[in-house]
Design a protein around this nucleic acid. Sequence first.
DNA 1: TCATCCCTGTGG
DNA 2: CCACAGGGATGA
Length: 248
Amino acid sequence: MVRGLRPHVEGEGLRAIEVYDPKLGDLDGALHLPVPVKAISRRGKYVLFDLGVRTLVLHLRMSGRLVWAKRKPGGRVRLVLRFPEGGVYFVDPRRLGTAEVVSEFTADLGPEPLGDLAWLPAALQQSRTPLKLWLMDQRKIAGIGNIYAAEILFRSGIAPVRRADSLTRGEVRKLQKAIPAVLEEAIACCGTTLTDGQYRGPQGEIGVFACELAVYGRDGEPCRQCGTPIRRTVLGGRGTFFCPRCQR
DNA sequence: TCATCCCTGTGG
DNA sequence: CCACAGGGATGA
């Protein structure tokens, strides 16, 4: 998503911030607009607009989308970042997303999942939590959510409830490979659009990784690898999908 | 380490 | 109608 927005906003002047949801509060109070966007980047699931002395921090949570458009798109627009050539529209029907302007971005985030994962074995050894919860704990490793946790575990052949500190060396190696493999593949597919009105890229692109999902949302359907019905349980309050045969 | 809550929309 | 939804902060 950040890659899609980059050509539209990087180096461009942010003219105005229009807030349509009082929950978001005032955002431009500490800013001298217009201000050039020096860079747009990502850390974990946070989107960061580098405005020089300040940083605009967005988090889309469950239902948020960032749409680049000339005019207002459909849906519940909570925020607009106005640029000369168009706007970044923060569409967010559930209103769980967040936006703030800060002097320095801070968040309790673990390392990026696409960097060197040499630290992983030692970190896993220190935790007794179920592996799926470990993967989704942003303080342990940043950026992995419910869909990709499920898919990473399937590709690793590890059951979601396995304690993090119980993995064999071989399983850790599989996990180490599966984390970047699943994420890179999903990014190459432009993400995962499950149904209409859900995740889209900044130009409305559908994320076709939904076609590649092995377990997520496939409760009761046959495993693509062994035919065993995919099962759904609840872990940490979240739907958890896995193949009881392929994942031990 | 957990359930709960924040919100609203959709699908069964 | 109820269950559930891609996330995360909070308080027990």
